[in-house]
Structures are given as structure tokens and as C-alpha cells.
């Protein structure tokens, strides 16, 4: 069978029902695609099939015939996104990172935070609580870095308690009065 892998044509003799994941890792030697669950739940095995993210643990390799498959090794044009995952805390242990990057690479440029969450809901990360991933996506799109600024505990101690006027009361607050 033939398909295009990371921009290059490949021809393989493989059993048709083998998982695309295994063929990529074992036959093509591309181990950047990870197996986290084998249930299509964690998204660590995400690759792009004709540009659309799919779980490669659920794809029979035969169905990749004639398609364009993109793995983390072949992700092009997303250097900023990859760099931001390094600098903004999007990657910690890194095992989910290839899947997140591939899924994130398909998000519309102007996606709101809600849309980013929806687009990445098929990828599980246990290290970051996802916050670092959102920051990475935002910075890759030109958003400002938001590095934490620790402050001395003593100063916090001296900070007077909320003197600032509360902002306009929420609808919920109004209802309760």
C-alpha cells in the first residue's frame, strides 16, 4: 500500500488491519507518535490524516491508503507553536506533547479560549492542568508572555486586605439580594 508520510511517498507491505500507530512506530521508525491508552481517549497517538487529527490507535493502516499522514516528525510551519510549548510550560513530561501539537496545529488562528478547549478536549495531559498549553497556544499566536512573578511572603503579609471596591456585582449577586 502507498500513502504520503510527512510529505514523502511511502510504499509498505503490511497487514491491512494493523493499527496505523504500530505501522508508523514499528515499520516507519517514527516513534514520536505515542500510545497512551489504545481506546481513543487520551489523544497521545494523534496524527493528521489528510490534515484532520485522528487517533492512530483506532485506524486500520489500510484506511491510510492514498492519504497524507502527518506525524510530529513531519509537522511543518509550526515552529512558533513548538517553541512556545518549550518556553511557556506546554510540555512537562512530554509524552502527550506530540498529540497536543498536532491537534493544536489545526486550530483556527482566531480561536477563542473556549474553542481551543473544545479543539483539545480529545487530548489528555496529566502534568499541566492544561494552563501551560493554553499559554503556549496564545504565545505562538503573538500573545504576550505571562511569566509568573513570585513575591516575598512578608510583603503579602503586609498587604492590606481587599480595600479596592468590588467591581459591578454579578447577575447572580443581584439575584440573591
Amino acid at each position: 500500500m502507498r500513502f504520503t508520510l510527512n510529505g514523502k511517498p511511502v510504499e509498505l507491505k503490511v497487514a491491512p488491519m494493523r493499527r496505523l500507530l504500530d505501522v508508523l512506530r514499528e515499520d516507519c521508525g517514527l516513534t514520536g507518535t505515542k500510545e497512551g491508552c489504545g481506546e481513543g481517549e487520551c489523544g497521545a497517538c494523534t496524527v493528521l490524516l489528510d490534515g484532520a487529527p485522528v487517533n492512530s490507535c483506532l485506524v486500520p493502516v489500510a484506511q491510510a491508503e492514498g492519504t497524507k499522514v502527518t506525524t510530529i516528525e513531519g509537522l511543518r510551519g509550526h515552529t512558533k507553536l513548538q517553541q512556545a510549548f518549550v518556553t511557556e510550560g506546554g510540555a512537562q513530561c512530554g509524552i502527550c506533547t506530540p498529540g497536543f501539537l498536532l491537534a493544536a496545529s489545526t486550530l483556527p488562528r482566531a480561536a477563542s479560549l473556549e474553542a481551543v478547549k473544545q479543539g483539545l478536549a480529545g487530548n489528555l495531559c496529566r502534568c499541566t492542568g492544561y494552563a501551560g498549553i493554553y499559554r503556549s497556544v496564545a504565545v505562538a499566536r503573538g500573545g504576550a508572555r505571562a511569566a509568573p512573578k513570585p513575591k516575598p511572603a512578608a510583603r503579602a503579609k503586609a498587604t492590606p486586605r481587599a480595600k479596592t471596591k468590588p467591581k459591578a456585582r454579578s447577575a447572580a449577586a443581584r439575584r440573591s439580594r
Binding site: 516528525e73 510549548f85 518549550v86 506530540p98
Partner: peptide
Amino acid sequence: PRLEGAAKVDGR
């Protein structure tokens, strides 16, 4: 930047 970060974002 995380020292091993680059290898974690390009599949190496």
C-alpha cells in the same frame, strides 16, 4: 526554556 524541551516538541 526547559533543557530537554526541544526534543519533546519534535518527537526526538
